[in-house]
Simulated scan of single mutants.
Amino acid sequence: MAISRGARTLVVLLWTVLLGAALAAAPPATADAGTTWLCRPGQPADPCGGRSGAPVDCFYVYPTISAQLSTNANFDRSPEVQGIARLQAEPFGANCNVWAPVYRQLTLRSLFAGTPEERAAALELAYDDVERAWDDYLANHNDGRGVVLIGHSQGTRMLRTLIQERIEGTPAQSQLVSALLLGGGVTVRAGDVVGGDFESVPACTDAAQTGCVVAYSAYSRIPPDIRYGRSPSPGLEVLCTNPASLHDNSASAPLHSIIGGRDVESFRGRCTGGTTNVLLIDGPGAQLLPTVPNESWGLHLLDVNVAQGDLVDLVATQAAAYGH
């Protein structure tokens, strides 16, 4: 899909507006065992809050956000990386100890202007960093605690592969509290809660369930050229789990949104089901939410935020269930 220079510029500008209030000075990067940590418990001026003492950890991988002009970002804790962590991950620090590695992600420039071959190579390099950080975290920092995986967009792509390569079918699967894989197209067998991407990590169907996945892409309206949520092949469907109504994803339920650092209680969400399965957002103001860079992306920039309060509460419930 061709994206104009104006659209690409708008993406960067909108992220800048969204992140501006979230940016804060940060200490030099903390590195160990080859990992550069954006967030780790106890770190001063940590964009994820730096809180410790929760019974479980969160391992967060941020979305495509780097404004660097290279194909892959470097290991700098750049302002945009800090800002998105503050917006997306910091609220979860109330219920988990947040760890987040810096990784050499595919940049915004490469996403919109790179060749398919360049993007594929860049994503492989990015995943290698995330995998190494996960191995470092498990070996040197986890101490047997349960873990919630949190990803969005490119971060979800990284964590989906991590589950397949490093978690499913290994001892680490017993430590999986849940995986919040948002805006990334997790698949299951049609009409089932497993299959597709994962064979033994099911969709969450109850707030107290552990070892399961929450996944969706948010839209306020369904465009004809929808980018996310469309079934990739016969027999598979894109997973949509409504975090406000896990027992009945198709039910319209009130959402607790946190947008721009403010609580918003005006939206409702329901999964549409079928061959295009997305979290449809309605309610006062829903049609004014930005669809950037165009309508085919839906509310991709706000996937986490439209149900962030519900997701934070869900982590608290799952952490309690995991501990019993």
Score class of each variant (00 low, 15 high):
residue 299 L to H: 06
residue 59 F to H: 13
residue 160 R to A: 13
residue 85 A to Y: 11
residue 258 I to K: 00
residue 225 D to W: 02
residue 117 E to V: 13
residue 167 I to W: 02
residue 27 P to Y: 05
residue 62 Y to D: 08
residue 194 V to M: 12
residue 50 G to K: 05
residue 241 T to N: 15
residue 127 Y to A: 02
residue 211 G to E: 02
residue 180 L to N: 08
residue 261 G to E: 06
residue 231 S to Q: 13
residue 229 G to I: 03
residue 126 A to M: 15
residue 66 S to W: 10
residue 297 W to Q: 12
residue 184 G to N: 09
residue 41 P to E: 14
residue 246 L to H: 11
residue 286 A to G: 11
residue 228 Y to M: 13
residue 42 G to K: 08
residue 204 C to I: 10
residue 242 N to H: 07
residue 187 T to N: 09
residue 225 D to G: 03
residue 314 L to H: 03
residue 312 V to C: 01
residue 244 A to W: 07
residue 190 A to E: 15
residue 38 L to G: 01
residue 38 L to V: 12
residue 161 T to H: 10
residue 231 S to L: 04
residue 131 E to A: 15
residue 126 A to I: 12
residue 160 R to T: 15
residue 132 R to C: 06
residue 229 G to E: 01
residue 305 N to V: 04
residue 249 N to C: 04
residue 105 Q to D: 15
residue 189 R to Y: 04
residue 122 A to Y: 00
residue 121 A to T: 12
residue 85 A to V: 09
residue 52 S to N: 13
residue 152 H to I: 11
residue 120 A to K: 09
residue 86 R to Y: 04
residue 67 A to F: 12
residue 183 G to F: 07
residue 73 A to Q: 06
residue 177 V to Q: 01
residue 167 I to N: 03
residue 54 A to M: 12
residue 313 D to H: 11
residue 277 N to W: 07
residue 290 P to T: 01
residue 239 L to K: 09
residue 184 G to C: 04
residue 161 T to V: 13
residue 55 P to K: 11
residue 210 T to P: 10
residue 65 I to P: 03
residue 79 P to S: 10
residue 23 L to P: 02
residue 276 T to K: 05
residue 307 A to K: 01
residue 133 A to D: 12
residue 126 A to W: 15
residue 4 S to N: 05
residue 127 Y to P: 02
residue 270 R to A: 15
residue 58 C to R: 05
residue 90 E to I: 01
residue 142 N to I: 04
residue 38 L to K: 00
residue 157 R to P: 00
residue 170 T to V: 08
residue 176 L to K: 03
residue 310 D to K: 01
residue 204 C to L: 09
residue 69 L to G: 11
residue 95 N to V: 15
residue 51 R to Y: 09
residue 163 I to M: 14
residue 218 A to F: 00
residue 308 Q to M: 09
residue 25 A to H: 02
residue 206 D to L: 05
residue 307 A to F: 04
residue 212 C to V: 12
residue 290 P to I: 00
residue 177 V to M: 05
residue 190 A to Y: 07
residue 50 G to A: 06
residue 290 P to V: 00
residue 141 H to L: 01
residue 116 P to V: 12
residue 274 G to N: 01
residue 4 S to V: 04
residue 280 L to I: 06
residue 322 Y to R: 00
residue 36 T to W: 07
residue 73 A to C: 08
residue 293 P to G: 11
residue 107 T to V: 13
residue 273 G to H: 11
